[in-house]
């Protein structure tokens, strides 16, 4: 992860600054901000995505000095949920390369009776977006990589002659996340996205790749 960030930073250093985008500068679209993370102070963006098996609602707002506040709710088929909140920091901010690191605090709940899970599940994530196009950075291929360890709490109830005894035990697991997509900014405020998701859920169990389509909104009132 560290090597990736250093490499991306070096690459970003070679490019022109963000103000040098081609064509009329209409400002950074909300699609770029949502896909690549990060936003100027007061800018906000919302992502709604649906697919198999993941659905996601994500919002962010810029708070200045490269930081954003992020809130997210993710589910897989309505049986696995991950509400989370955290902060993002845009580490590379150039015309054709935006890199944002995000640290999230979340809670994992899986309701499957045979494989119930619940517990603290923070996430570290890096978003990379490369906007292209003459107006409003129309084409935005983007990549998301993350790791999400979870500390799962299990409650065991022992029923004996002297009554019930409850015991809490902890175990851990790890989910690695990869997602590759192409976002298209329709205008400054609206964009769409299509992508493939390559998660490795609860390593070392096998995971099936997924896909999603998304809608990006935001930027009004800035």
């Amino acid at each position: 992860m560290k090597a990736l960030l250093v490499g991306a930073w070096a690459l970003a250093s070679l490019g022109p600054p963000a103000g040098a985008i081609e064509g009329p500068d209409l400002g950074e679209s909300s699609t770029v901000q949502a896909a690549g993370g990060g936003a100027p102070r007061g800018d906000w963006a919302l992502e709604l995505s649906a697919g198999f098996p993941w659905q996601r609602l994500r919002g962010q707002v810029g708070v200045g000095r490269g930081f954003t506040v992020v809130g997210e709710f993710e589910t897989a088929l309505g049986r696995r949920f991950w509400p989370a909140a955290g902060v993002g920091y845009r580490m590379a901010d150039h015309a054709h390369l935006r890199i944002t690191g995000e640290a999230m605090l979340g809670w994992l709940v899986q309701t499957t009776p045979e494989l119930r899970k619940r517990g603290f599940a923070p996430m570290l994530r890096v978003r990379v977006a490369s906007p292209w196009g003459r107006r409003v950075n129309r084409w935005i291929p983007h990549l998301e990589l993350g790791m999400r360890p979870a500390i799962l709490m299990d409650r065991s109830v022992y029923v004996g002659a002297r009554g019930e005894r409850t015991q809490w035990t902890a175990r851990s697991n790890l989910t690695l996340w990869g997602s590759l997509g192409l976002a298209v900014a329709i205008n400054e405020h609206v964009g769409v996205d299509i992508g493939i998701d390559l998660p490795w859920v609860d390593v070392p169990a096998i995971s099936i790749p997924g896909f999603h389509v998304g809608l990006y909104l935001g930027g009004w009132g800035r």
Binding site: L77, R80, T112, L115, D202, A205, S207, I208
Partner: peptide, 10 residues
């Protein structure tokens, strides 16, 4: 042992 996401509804 089922792959995700099928193990969410085994």
């Amino acid at each position: 042992r089922f792959p995700f996401p099928f193990n969410t509804n085994p």
